[in-house]
Nucleic acid binder design. Structure first.
Length: 260
DNA sequence: ATGGTGGTTCAACCA
């Protein structure tokens, strides 16, 4: 069973590429971020025609997340628990069947947090604290689960081509990285890191300054697996070839393959 | 590089 995450940076601009990638990569489950669409504007019919069920948590203009799955998507929760006043559409969760077992999938678009010195950075850290609390609650269920998405966190120096260029960026602040490590300390596994520990694995290249041509990338899109999901982990990878497409997203798909 | 590019909505915001 293949589970993928992709920040597509606008579903209207990316629907053709998304359908091409679905046909080629054949994921069973996809977590999409930055759809930048309200629910009614999401291309549900085209994606259903490609063989997927759809659950959307949209927002006008910014943010927005969605789950796609070949199986039914059950018990959908929209919005990250812990702050009913948070209006930003950054989290969607649902259960899918992997063979005979149910897997809980959380798709997330973690706040960017830039620029430092504004209210955006404490919002990011507060959101990460809510994610940690929710991950702890999911762990207690002992159901296999995956938290997949654009974390907007560079975990280690090896996850950036030029790590020092990110020293003043919210994605690489000590507080952001410490919050990431607290997620790992719950017993979650960074699937890409565990399957390919070497440097040079990136998931995002800025549109600006020829970042892709220079391979000036960072690894910020992650799949964190619960202990019960890690037991099923067979492989993980990054579909970097989509970054060379015309009109690409600045992020590329990241995926794991689970047994059964 | 206090710039650079791109998406969405429609002059400004976000990344």
């Amino acid at each position: 069973m293949k589970i993928a995450t992709w920040n597509i940076n606008g579903v209207k601009a990316r629907i053709e590429g998304l359908l091409t990638w679905l046909a080629e990569s054949k994921p069973d489950v996809v977590c999409l971020q930055e759809i930048k669409s309200v629910d009614e504007g999401f291309p549900t019919e085209a994606i259903e025609a490609a063989g997927y069920n759809v659950a959307v948590h949209g927002q006008k203009g910014f943010n927005g997340v969605a789950l796609l799955a070949k199986s039914r998507i059950e018990d959908v929760v929209r919005g990250l628990p812990g702050d009913p006043g948070d209006e930003q559409a950054r989290y969607i969760e649902g259960s899918v069947m992997a063979g005979s077992r149910s897997v809980r999938i959380g798709g997330l678009y973690l706040p960017n947090g830039n620029p430092l010195g504004t209210e955006k950075f404490p919002y990011k850290l507060a959101w990460m604290a809510r994610l940690e609390a929710h991950a702890r609650a999911l762990t207690a269920t002992e159901q296999p689960f995956i938290l997949a998405g654009d974390y907007n966190v560079i975990p280690e120096r090896a996850d950036a081509k030029i790590p020092d260029a990110w020293n003043s960026d919210a994605l690489f602040q000590p507080e952001s990285r410490a919050a990431w490590r607290r997620l790992l300390a719950l017993g979650l596994t960074d699937a890409i890191r565990s399957c390919d520990p070497g440097p040079g694995v990136y998931t995002f290249w800025d549109y600006q300054a020829g970042a892709w041509q220079k391979d000036n990338g960072i690894r910020i899109d992650h799949l964190l697996l619960s202990p019960q999901a890690t037991d099923l982990l067979q492989s993980a990878g990054v579909d970097r070839y989509t970054r060379s497409w015309e009109k690409p997203s600045d992020h590329v798909p990241v995926w794991v393959e689970l047994a059964a």
